[in-house]
């Protein structure tokens, strides 16, 4: 039962990443692309969590936490660059 749900989850999350990639490539403005990257790392966290449940390993949670932190810092840095023309002000 869980295996079926996990397989469906893998497929749907890959579809989500493809949709985010469409917005990342198409996005008419720079904030659109940053938003697509932000959504992409959140979906990657979901994919890694599903993978950890599938393999019954807990080491993937540390990877997910690291991706969450680095993605947040990256989003804030890019938005700050657009706002002020400088990352650290």
């Amino acid at each position: 039962m869980i295996t079926v749900a996990l397989n469906v989850g893998f497929a749907v999350m890959c579809l989500c990443l493809i949709l985010n990639l469409i917005r990342l490539l198409k996005g008419p403005s720079t904030p659109d692309r940053i938003l697509a990257l932000d959504t992409m790392y959140i979906n990657t966290i979901a994919l890694i969590l599903l993978f950890g449940v599938r393999l019954e390993r807990e080491i993937f949670f540390e990877a997910a936490l690291l991706i969450a932190m680095m993605g947040f810092i990256g989003t804030v840095a890019l938005a700050n660059y657009l706002l002020h023309g400088d990352i650290i002000d």
């Binding site: 989850g9 959140i42 979901a46």
Partner: peptide, 19 residues
């Protein structure tokens, strides 16, 4: 299984809305 499907469908709705 239900929680996994609910979460995945929410993620899918979010990504679809982004496009």
């Amino acid at each position: 299984a239900a929680l996994i499907l609910i979460g995945v469908s929410f993620c899918f709705v979010g990504s679809l809305g982004l496009v």
